[in-house]
Design a protein around this nucleic acid. Sequence first.
DNA 1: TTGAAAGCGCTAACAG
DNA 2: CTGTTAGCGCTTTCAA
Lengths: 348, 348
Amino acid sequence: MKKKATIVDIANKLGITPSAVSKALSGHPRISDETKLAVIAAAKALEYTPNHMAMGLRKGTSGLIGILVPAIHYSFFATAIKGAEEVLSQAGYNVIIAQSKDNAALERKQLEGLVRAQVEGIIASMAIETKDFSFYQELSFDIPLVLFDRTFEDDNVSTVIVDDFAGAVKAVDHLVEMGYSRIAHLGGYAHILPFGKRIEGYKSALAKHGLPFRKEYLFQCAPNKDEGAQATERLLQLPEPPDAIFAASDYLAFGAIKAAKKQGLHVPDDLGLVGFSNEEFSAQVSPSITSVDQFSEAMGASAAELLVRQMREGKGGKEFIAQKRILSPKLIARESSLRKVKTTLHTP
Amino acid sequence: MKKKATIVDIANKLGITPSAVSKALSGHPRISDETKLAVIAAAKALEYTPNHMAMGLRKGTSGLIGILVPAIHYSFFATAIKGAEEVLSQAGYNVIIAQSKDNAALERKQLEGLVRAQVEGIIASMAIETKDFSFYQELSFDIPLVLFDRTFEDDNVSTVIVDDFAGAVKAVDHLVEMGYSRIAHLGGYAHILPFGKRIEGYKSALAKHGLPFRKEYLFQCAPNKDEGAQATERLLQLPEPPDAIFAASDYLAFGAIKAAKKQGLHVPDDLGLVGFSNEEFSAQVSPSITSVDQFSEAMGASAAELLVRQMREGKGGKEFIAQKRILSPKLIARESSLRKVKTTLHTP
DNA sequence: TTGAAAGCGCTAACAG
DNA sequence: CTGTTAGCGCTTTCAA
């Protein structure tokens, strides 16, 4: 590995000073086109690459944005990162990623790591077990921060979320329309905002349709297959089991399908199912899972745009105003809820 | 945003010099435990965070590793990144990710971006359209580089791959065992090493079983559903269509299933299918796809370990020796190849 | 055991 | 239009 050329090298080669080179390279107005050209040529000849760290140290910038998610291999997060990365790299930033593994302690450690790496802004989605938001709140004073999907209520923090309440209502509406009436909900933990909103939407939609809310029909679980299967088993053992389940994640819904099949039930004829997030596998499993699409890529891109704008405003001196972006979710109907015979049993 | 404390602040507070603070903080041996403790306490009180860029500029390190993949939302790459991120963050590095979108020009641009960000090492998987490896070769002189999965042949570059030849042989062996005899191959582009090896393994396994190689049974496509479906349609129109397909990716295999269904063929009874990579959806589609698992997470982790070791050796002065790691793939048999009636038609 | 001084590569006043 | 100078925050000889 040969040592890299610096602006000093190119200044020497040309018999001018480093500062002239610096100006030429950054297109400073008050420098002759002649030297600009010469500098650019010399830079190419010496294979000069600017040293970001030196520049960063001087200018107080790093060109780095941190993205923290629970797990990058969940397709929702992977797709959101993709969306964000494209916007950010377009805007000239490099993206550092970190995973919390849904663990509050690790989340904190990773956030500190990002800060230490001098990121200029952070995009994050909270760990499922995080209940203490103070760290995020403090962070938002020091550094531009945008939360997406897994957020909490705070007027000072910008967020991008899907309208989870509306999504839940759409899911329940759809199940009712398909003739189901005993609709259970496999929810996430209510303290995480989107899951709380989905629970609220679920309850509200039940009320709208004159259906009773039964608390034995509501489970709060971690959003994975196993908990979905376990909760479903419990639901099916009730004296009056549900005829449909609205799950707050497709992983939960998939677990529910497994459990239902194990009990010899047919989906959707015996048990209707709607998930949330529209994961890649949901269209491809059998039966395919009806799901509420939350436009993960758009969400990541939107969070990135918001962050970039926020950083620009922060630089301009004036305080930025925290923004809340709410995307409208869309129900994608698939096999798991489309039963042939619609039997409307409930009496409103 | 309050401005951050520096070692100068903490030196002033304690009435000592910055250099003493620096030494205390880095656990330098020749500094009294007394001042060490005082420094640590003061650092905490002032909420001191070290400035990575200043440190990097001084020591010539950035603590950054770049990972470049074609697309981070493909589960294979997402999982590999997860594996690598865990190893790297354990080793004290931050991870920058970049996507090439399988586009050679963008790949190059992104690699340059990583270099400019002063990454200390790069882990990459090549874009599908890249045919000119010289940029990677030059890069490997300047910076520790480990390629995984999508690699090329070069003795000076470390690589982590799965034994693609062996994987292809396992796939064909399995199909033959299930009684298929007219086995086609939907391959990737042969110039990308793993795809080339799979083609070789396919041919070799056919020969081993006394089956003829027919060039009309071999397609080279981009590894996605659409090309898989198109190629399969063409295959099924042949005067003597295949009774099984070994696809070099699960996306291709999934496209093949779609095409077969469209033609009214039953998988696996009319057409046996084996994919490659064992994507998340492969276990869950219907019929589930038999696939060759390449241990994506282990691959990412292994690449990261190799890179870390390489960087350490490079620092030690002695030249590192490029290593080739080869993981052994495993066939996971699922519905798409398990037909009930095994009919062995071919005469060896 | 600590301090003084120099410098990593770059930029931004301010002079010339 | 270009040069001079100083310094971003930190580490690292060398000297005390």
